[in-house]
């Protein structure tokens, strides 16, 4: 992957507790090409948000990167000193959070927060920053941008605030944007708009996106590739079309089976029996083996490594070529 913009290799995120370290992200590797949209999906607690936080260097203590590396444009960024990493944040990697209602500081106008961000990263004066802020608000589709610049966050609706958040994340034209559940807190009617704003802007500016979500619909619409996470590990990663149409890993198959299909008629939704293991009780071998109907003895002993099956990489001993899926 010589052309990768962002490369995450064997990333391990641990939380130190009194009873030893909890591994919340365990050996995650993926690469992101410039302009590519990578979806990170999984259940709550699968470690997808933590992976995003680790990449941008915003893990909250006691969480920390215990092993692995994060490389941006050929330079390791996980080992950068605080101040150098601060300059990467916002300038080279932007971030969009889940809840637009709480992401903006209530005491500053939208314009103040935009110009502050712009002037932190770009050598412009106040007037230029203000003009750029107006352009950004226009870009994310906020009507009467020059007038709205002096409004406070509470004067915007939820969808409009998320547009402002996106404008802030893109203020210094970063190479990568990490969007952590950007639509989860929004009305369904607004979700599609926000996703299309994010997608269009990133395509236009050539920004790569890591889209963290549990919404497969959003992934199907937006992502180029998708990584499925389970218990802190990536179980399957590949082009979005292949993973959705022909999932190979038993967990991915279960996940796809649990999505209602409008054309599918009255068929019962498939459930995966059991629940994801707690971090202090992750099974030996494949983390999914207790819930897996295809599990063999080997799955309970040996942790599977990534194998290429068709167009996707899969961490499974059993999964065969695509024909084996029904």
């Amino acid at each position: 992957m010589g052309d990768a913009l962002l490369e995450v290799k064997d990333l391990v995120v641990e939380f130190k507790t009194r009873r030893g370290a909890l591994r919340a992200v365990d050996g995650v590797s993926f690469a992101l090409k410039p302009g590519e949209v990578l979806g990170l999906v999984g259940e709550s607690g699968a470690g997808k948000s933590l992976t995003g936080a680790a990449v941008i260097g915003l893990l909250e203590p006691p969480g920390h990167i215990a092993a692995g590396s994060v490389t941006l444009g050929g330079e390791r960024i996980d080992t950068l000193p605080r101040e150098a990493m601060r300059k990467v944040r916002g300038k080279r990697i932007g971030m969009v959070f889940q809840d637009p209602l709480t992401s903006l500081n209530p005491l500053y106008t939208v314009g103040e927060q935009l110009t502050e961000t712009i002037r932190t990263h770009l050598p412009v004066n106040q007037a230029e920053a203000r003009q750029r802020a107006i352009d950004l608000l226009n870009d994310v589709g906020i009507p009467a941008a020059s007038r709205r610049l002096d409004s406070y966050p509470h004067e915007f609706s939820g969808g409009m605030r998320q547009r402002v958040v996106i404008a802030l994340a893109l203020a210094a034209e970063p190479e990568v944007v990490i969007a952590d559940e950007p639509t989860t807190a929004l009305d369904v009617s607004v979700q599609a708009q926000i996703i299309s704003v994010l997608k269009n802007l990133c395509t236009e500016k050539g920004t790569a996106v890591i889209l963290v979500t549990h919404d497969m619909g959003v992934i199907a619409e937006t992502a180029d590739r998708v990584a499925v996470m389970y218990a802190g590990r990536i179980v399957e990663i590949g082009p979005v079309r292949d993973v959705i149409k022909q999932p190979v890993h038993p967990y991915t198959m279960g996940l796809m089976g649990s999505i209602p299909d409008p054309q599918g008629g009255a068929e019962r939704l498939v459930q995966i029996p059991g629940a994801m293991p707690r971090l202090n009780a992750i099974p030996v071998g494949c983390a999914f083996n207790p819930r897996c109907q295809m599990a063999i003895d080997r799955c309970r002993v040996e942790r599977p490594t990534m194998r290429r099956i068709g167009a996707t990489d899969v961490a499974c001993h059993v999964a065969g070529p695509a024909e084996t899926t029904p």
């Binding site: 941008i56 601060r86 944040r89 916002g90 932007g94 209530p106 502050e116």
Partner: peptide, 25 residues
């Protein structure tokens, strides 16, 4: 709060985050 996390994610300096954003609130 989220807006402090977001302020950090925007790469603002510690001083701006602590005294501009946090202290005022």
């Amino acid at each position: 709060t989220d807006y402090i996390k977001f302020a950090r994610a925007r790469g603002l300096s510690d001083r701006a985050v602590h005294f501009g954003h946090a202290l005022k609130n």
